[in-house]
Amino acid sequence: MALAITTKPAAPVLTVPEFCAHARLPDDTPDAVYIASILDAVTAWLAGPNGWLGRSLIAQTLTLTVPLNVVVGFVGPMIADAMTGVVLPRPPVIDVESVAVLDGAGAATTIPQAQYSTHEGADGMTRLVLAPGFQMPTIDRAPAWLRTVYRAGYGAAGTDVDAGIRHAMLMAAMRLYAGRGDPSVTLGSDPMLAELFKPYAGWSGR
């Protein structure tokens, strides 16, 4: 399975003024550039290509490519009604832009929208499901792959992201800001931050 971010988020989740308000710093703080780098680091840790949170925050376009033989089974956790499909990692999923079958030479056959649907399970994961009776396109060269292009995220603006995630990100940024120069201050090993983000952690497919 391969997952790539094909269109990056167009806006930051948090801004320097938002951090300054949280930290009770003046808007014209001389640390503005440093704070911006901290916010970038926290965002990358959570929602980068291998983000710890396993979620998309600002809307972005993702491309998932999986071997076609997994479509008849499933990728990821099974959902309650036993429906199977391909998990679309990095939720929340906004919409699916295209689905195609690729052969071993890279030739793509687009699957009509009527031939697939998406379903969200109780675990919060969205799955792509091919319609009953789906007819496999003619493959000139094996192996075959299923390529799904979809958009995921809470919205186009930072304020669209869940308030709990934004607050936890501010707390994480504060830890780094207050502990600058201290190599013992890290994000991944901080139990308090892990608890703050735990309700939002999703299955990442990694």
Score class of each variant (00 low, 15 high):
residue 99 V to L: 10
residue 178 A to P: 00
residue 157 A to L: 11
residue 111 I to V: 15
residue 158 G to P: 06
residue 164 G to S: 06
residue 89 P to I: 04
residue 137 P to M: 02
residue 176 L to N: 04
residue 181 G to T: 09
residue 64 L to V: 05
residue 91 P to W: 03
residue 174 M to Y: 11
residue 163 A to W: 00
residue 78 M to F: 04
residue 159 T to V: 13
residue 58 I to C: 07
residue 82 A to E: 12
residue 164 G to A: 07
residue 129 V to T: 10
residue 131 A to F: 00
residue 96 V to T: 12
residue 131 A to V: 11
residue 154 Y to W: 15
residue 69 N to K: 03
residue 121 G to L: 08
residue 164 G to H: 09
residue 168 A to V: 01
residue 137 P to R: 02
residue 60 Q to K: 14
residue 176 L to S: 03
residue 153 G to N: 03
residue 161 V to P: 04
residue 170 L to V: 09
residue 80 A to Y: 09
residue 148 T to C: 12
residue 138 T to Q: 14
residue 158 G to M: 06
residue 169 M to G: 01
residue 179 G to H: 09
residue 144 A to K: 01
residue 89 P to C: 03
residue 155 G to C: 04
residue 128 L to N: 08
residue 77 P to A: 13
residue 56 S to E: 10
residue 90 R to M: 08
residue 154 Y to V: 08
residue 160 D to T: 04
residue 156 A to Q: 12
residue 125 M to E: 15
residue 113 Q to M: 12
residue 148 T to K: 02
residue 117 S to E: 15
residue 100 A to D: 05
residue 190 D to E: 03
residue 82 A to H: 10
residue 182 D to C: 00
residue 154 Y to Q: 05
residue 79 I to M: 14
residue 67 P to T: 10
residue 176 L to K: 05
residue 93 V to S: 06
residue 151 R to D: 02
residue 76 G to Y: 06
residue 172 A to E: 11
residue 80 A to E: 14
residue 154 Y to D: 10
residue 81 D to Q: 06
residue 182 D to W: 00
residue 174 M to L: 13
residue 124 G to T: 05
residue 93 V to T: 13
residue 129 V to C: 08
residue 152 A to L: 05
residue 55 R to M: 06
residue 173 A to T: 10
residue 157 A to Q: 14
residue 135 Q to E: 14
residue 168 A to D: 03
residue 135 Q to T: 15
residue 120 E to F: 00
residue 186 T to W: 01
residue 171 M to V: 15
residue 177 Y to S: 05
residue 94 I to A: 08
residue 168 A to R: 01
residue 109 T to R: 13
residue 65 T to S: 14
residue 119 H to C: 03
residue 122 A to V: 08
residue 180 R to N: 12
residue 100 A to G: 08
